[in-house]
Computed example of a mutant assay.
Amino acid sequence: MKPQGEITRGTTNPNRLRRVDRWIAWWCARALAGAADPLVVDLGYGATPITAVELRARLGRVRPDVRVTGLEIDPVRVAAAQAAADPPGLTFARGGFELAGLRPVVVRAFNVLRQYDESAVPAAWTTMTGNLAPGGWLIEGTCDELGRLGSWAALPAGASTPATLTLAAKLSTLESPATFAERLPKALIHRNVPGEPVYDLLRTLDEAWRHAAPLAVFGPRQRWQDAISRLKAAGWPVLDRPARWRLGEVTLAWPAPAVSGKVQESHRG
């Protein structure tokens, strides 16, 4: 099976994806726990296999027998990663959006679609979600080089559009939620313009952050929690709870005109 996609730039750093990994361990916990085969794919792990190694360790706390397969289109990267392999728990193979014929319960595709044209995103999403195991999830997004700021979409098996958008940051370094605009998923980054839901979302969150400025004396965590409370009070479909907000996260229904209704908490993983 010929891999579908292009070779990524390959930039990676230890702990770069710790925020999304922590979120996957929460959101996908039920999907992993109930899977007959707890297979997870790290798509486009990059020039070194460290993110796949870390993903296996973090998800192993949820499902000790989890299996992680790192997929890369570049055969040189696949060969270099074999030194880190620990089968059956951690393996590496050549593959792209077709997932090398695997049927994982979770796919993490991070900093992959960022290099593509926006027009290529829907087909990539559909290909990946079409190869998920029943009840599985595709987590697709981007983050900065150190993992301090990021966002991601979550798509259930068989879906062509996301169910949710998550924004996450290291709060001690967050100057303004407006900076999320630089790290939105590819499907949204060019839609951060007046008239688009994501533009209104970031504007509302930024205003809430400014209104919460007096709480900064108690620390950025308290300020962020107050800002998310204000965001929710303004009518935005916030799907998680304060326990997640304290981690510097917020998960909402996908901000697109095609999405109607609220994704209920019962749909999670």
Rank of each mutant, 00 (worst) to 15 (best):
A93N: 02
G34H: 05
N131T: 10
R22A: 14
A35H: 06
R18T: 07
A57S: 09
V107F: 11
Q82Y: 09
L55Q: 03
A79V: 08
R67Y: 03
G46W: 05
T126C: 10
V106K: 08
V105F: 09
V105G: 06
L113V: 08
T11G: 13
N15R: 14
L102F: 09
R94C: 14
G34N: 11
P122H: 08
C28E: 12
V20D: 11
G46A: 11
L102Y: 09
G130I: 11
L132P: 01
R63H: 15
D65S: 12
V76D: 14
E54N: 00
C28N: 04
A84L: 01
R30C: 06
L32Y: 03
A33Y: 01
Q4A: 10
P14C: 08
F97K: 01
G101V: 02
D117W: 11
L59H: 13
G70C: 11
R22S: 14
P104V: 06
L99I: 09
R19L: 03
A47H: 09
T12M: 07
N111C: 10
R22G: 10
G5I: 08
N13K: 13
Q115I: 14
R16M: 09
I73N: 01
W26V: 12
I24S: 05
T127Y: 00
V121Q: 09
D86L: 14
